[in-house]
């Protein structure tokens, strides 16, 4: 089995996939770092102070103004109200949620990439794991070895898990290393609030407590890893079912993007919460953002994702071990 996994990893590495992904991450992190830097400068100029309390107060006033303006949707209003309460809570408890530093940037980066960017990277690896063997014809050589078919597929699945780990890990390392050049490498122990839960329009702060940023990051990256695995498994299934890598990527891309769009407009379509793509923003539950559909919780989303992944895994193995190869 170790030999088989070694083979699969060798192929992934020699196709230069991991290298390309690391390069994409590095470029994007640099871009975001620059954007973040510009944003901080702008805020500083506008408010004319570097004091975060003043900044936060300004933000609260901004949010209130937007709330009072006419013509904004009910959903958006709800979201703003929750935001407002959260910002107020930070202010009241003397916590700077935006304290600069590489760890804060990492947090921002993972929260924004968990829904689309990270799944896309995983998809690039998982999409051609099986389909490229089928379209290249090498599947015939692979399946005529004295190795059972499920073992071959299992080695590919393990390779997918390893690559996903590599991707999440490299996102963490690169976002820390690159943003640190600008923002400094400190801030691991910054206390952050978590435990928000949302009931209707109210932000329930009863369970809110402080945890150091490193712990917070650990949780968020854990969730990001989980999401990546689920997306990887779904892509893996498509890769087994479809010969064309391009088609696999197309379908997966459509699903992921539709998820991002749906999240902002499905609040009245309740059964949409069983779709995997609206459940990808797991980090929102930690930072206390309103979920796309009422009644969704962290454990609910994780259950939905896990179920999708499990079904995909069963389908992959069933089809791969049974089907005729032409």
């Amino acid at each position: 089995m170790i030999n088989l996994v070694y083979n699969e990893m060798l192929k992934i590495v020699r196709k230069k996939r991991l290298f390309i992904i690391a390069a994409i991450v590095a470029v994007l992190v640099s871009l975001f770092t620059y954007a973040q830097l510009k944003q901080i400068e702008t805020i500083r100029e506008r408010i004319g102070t570097t004091d975060w309390r003043t900044q936060l107060q300004q933000q609260i006033i901004d949010t209130q103004n937007r709330l009072n303006s006419t013509g904004i949707s009910e959903e958006w209003k709800k979201f703003l109200k929750i935001r407002l309460q959260q910002q107020q809570y930070y202010l009241d408890n003397d916590i700077n949620p935006m304290a600069p530093g590489a760890p804060t940037f990492m947090r921002m980066f993972i929260e924004n990439s968990i829904e689309l960017f990270l799944p896309l990277l995983v998809m690039v690896i998982a999409a051609d794991l099986v389909s490229s063997e089928a379209s290249g014809g090498t599947i015939k050589l692979l399946l005529t070895r004295p190795v059972k078919r499920w073992k071959i597929l299992m080695s590919k699945y393990i390779a997918m898990i390893l690559s996903t780990s590599f991707i999440v890990f490299s996102v963490a390392i690169l976002s820390y290393a690159i943003s640190g050049i600008v923002f400094g490498y400190g801030g691991w122990n910054l206390p952050l609030l978590t435990g928000f839960s949302i009931q209707g329009e109210e932000l329930n702060t009863a369970a809110v407590h402080l945890i150091p940023q490193w712990k917070y990051l650990l949780i968020e990256f854990g969730l990001a890893f989980f999401v990546s695995l689920v997306v990887g498994t779904l892509t893996f299934m498509l890769s087994v079912l479809i010969r064309s890598t391009a088609a696999v990527m197309g379908i997966m891309l459509a699903a992921l993007i539709s998820g991002a769009i749906l999240s902002s407009m499905v609040s009245s379509w309740e059964s949409a919460k069983y779709l995997f793509m609206v459940n990808l923003r797991l980090t929102s539950y930690i930072s206390g953002m309103a979920p796309p559909i009422d009644g969704m919780t962290l454990s609910f989303s994780m259950m939905v994702l896990a179920t999708w992944a499990l079904v995909a895994l069963i389908v992959s193995f069933y089809v791969f071990t049974k089907r005729d190869v032409y």
Binding site: N7, L10, K15, G136, T138, K140, R145, P146
Partner: peptide
Amino acid sequence: IGCIVENPELYPYLSGWENLEHFARMV
């Protein structure tokens, strides 16, 4: 059994030796 089914399709991005090593690991 040793076989070639239709065209001898091997991994183009690996060297001949690496291809052989790859399949040797499976036997």
